[in-house]
């Protein structure tokens, strides 16, 4: 029980810091850091949903950024068509992304393992090219939005309002939701199917249905991240769906520690930090970032959660197992 409390403690600490940031940082004239934190939180929401697939479900998807982008575009197009209420846009984004997840997931899950990875990558790329061909909505260049969504007319969900807080609360909700889900009946079946699909099927579970449901849920959560990304950037572009963004998300969940409670969040904070620090040292920081990933892949197996908090809770055991398991 102690260990469980500890991962909650870490989470509480991070949230306290994130909550304090908008009050403290302006005092020390570091408001720039706030936009970095927003970036990390938006990434974390998407990464949490990806971890549901990869960490808990053993489904390595390399097309997850597509859901973020589709959510963002659905909301942006809704906004352009005159829908201003963010709740209506939320429903729109979640439904469109969920539908895309349902169709592509049903196809991709006809296979497993590395096939699944290739197919999600391909469908992600399809989304990317489709978005670039949307000429009325900016095509290649993306779409700059001139008016942003409101909450029943209030600007609380805008950059000028409390968007930071809204994003923080959404992050908390995603974290909590996925945490509950992974321990519920559904999550247990999902983890069982990851560890031993044959056995799980013979127990009487149709793993296809559980995996597809997880895929759709993950796509929907990613769409929420997309909606908020749009609201923050006041801009959408096909680059959001680029496969490198999917790769980044995968890096985040692996870095953070697969299937661990705080892995996706730690990974996102870490990635933004690395990008910022390396990038401020020299412009061609990717020359270091690339080899860093190679070294990670070769040597570190448990991710950041394991590195920072090496106590082996039951979840960490799961994660190491998922790491060693052939997908």
């Amino acid at each position: 029980m102690m260990r469980v409390d500890r991962s909650f403690l870490v989470m509480a600490l991070i949230f306290a810091l994130l909550l304090a940031a908008p009050f403290v940082l302006p005092l020390v004239e570091q408001t720039y850091l706030l936009s970095l934190l927003i970036k990390a939180m938006l990434l974390a929401i998407a990464a949490i949903s990806l971890d549901l697939l990869v960490g808990h479900g053993g489904m390595v998807s390399l097309g997850h950024a597509a859901f973020v982008a589709i959510g963002a575009y659905a909301a942006a197009i809704g906004l352009e068509s005159g829908i201003e209420n963010i709740l209506a846009l939320l429903v729109l984004a979640v439904l469109v992304s969920g539908l895309f997840a349902l169709v592509t997931g049903a196809l991709a899950l006809r296979t497993s393992g590395v096939y699944f990875l290739m197919i999600t990558l391909a469908f992600g790329q399809m989304a990317y090219f489709t978005l670039t061909s949307l000429a009325p909505y900016g095509g290649d260049d993306g779409l700059t939005l001139w008016s942003m969504a409101t909450l029943f007319g209030s600007d609380v969900v805008q950059n000028g309002g409390q968007l930071y807080l809204v994003i923080l609360l959404t992050l908390l909700a995603s974290w909590w939701g996925v945490h509950r889900l992974s321990n519920a009946r559904f999550g247990r079946v999902l983890r069982a199917a990851r560890d031993n699909p044959g056995r799980t099927e013979i127990m009487g579970f149709s793993i296809f249905r559980y995996r597809l449901t997880a895929y759709v849920i993950a796509g929907m959560i990613a769409a929420v991240s997309g909606l908020l990304t749009m609201q923050h950037a006041e801009f959408v572009s096909p680059a959001m769906a680029a496969w490198q963004r999917s790769g980044d998300l995968l890096v985040i969940v692996v870095l953070g520690g697969l299937g661990t409670r705080n892995g996706a969040l730690l990974g996102a904070l870490f990635l933004v930090l690395v990008e910022e620090v390396l990038g401020s040292i020299f412009h061609e920081w990717r020359l270091l970032y690339g080899p860093l990933l190679v070294l990670m892949a070769l040597h570190a197996k448990g991710g950041l959660s394991d590195l920072l908090f090496p106590a082996h809770g039951p979840e960490t055991t799961d994660a190491t197992r998922a790491n060693g398991e052939q997908i």
């Binding site: 393992g113 790769g247 061609e284 020359l287 190679v294 997908i327």
Partner: peptide
Amino acid sequence: VFRHLYGRDHLAQVLATFGIIIFLNELAK
């Protein structure tokens, strides 16, 4: 690189080769 990853899971392979892509693309640039 690759020799050390043959026996490993696909996720490690993806991570490592993704890193190589980032490196070589940047180097070309």
